[in-house]
């Protein structure tokens, strides 16, 4: 078994990030500058911002003295569910909830990006204006 190093945090969201972490009451705190890489939202004075949209965050989620921010509080502010493994240094974030809910309610297919057999990223929008069958299956 490999050695567990919980001074780094592996964050699993729509991508994978590995960042330095401090644990406060079993909650991961990270550098403010790492938030955008992890969540895709930038932490500003107004809150968490992406484009023209900002979401307010609780004032106690940031520590001005250490420059660290409570990652779970920020994820919760965005409505993301999380599971954290303190000992092993993993945090999984469900950042797809709004995308999924929109697709279910509006029936608008998200513009998926997936690699083709040659590894080239292809998006669903490449076949706009055409009928499409999206087939998902597992190889065992």
């Amino acid at each position: 078994m490999n050695k567990i190093d919980n001074k780094t945090l592996t964050v699993l969201s729509d991508h994978t990030s590995v960042v330095e972490v401090s644990w406060v009451d079993s909650r991961p705190s990270v550098k403010k500058t790492d938030v955008k890489e992890i969540l895709g939202w930038e932490l500003k004075d107004e809150g968490l911002c992406k484009g023209d949209t900002c979401v307010p965050v609780p004032s106690d989620s940031t520590s001005s003295s250490s420059g660290l921010v409570d990652l779970l509080t920020l994820a919760e502010a965005l409505g993301f569910s999380t599971v954290v493994d303190v000992e092993a240094g993993f945090l999984a974030i469900d950042c797809f909830s709004s995308l999924r809910q929109n697709a279910l309610s509006e029936r608008k297919a998200p513009d998926l990006n997936l690699p083709d057999l040659d590894g080239t990223l292809r998006s669903l929008s490449e076949w706009s204006d055409k009928k499409k069958l999206l087939v998902a299956f597992s190889s065992w």
């Binding site: 029936r107 608008k108 297919a109 669903l124 706009s128 204006d129 009928k131 499409k132 069958l133 999206l134």
Partner: peptide, 17 residues
């Protein structure tokens, strides 16, 4: 189990999975 979704010319899900 293979799962199929129908998506039309306007990227609307016509038949869900």
């Amino acid at each position: 189990m293979p799962t199929v979704i129908w998506v039309d010319e306007n990227d609307i899900i016509i038949r869900p999975n």
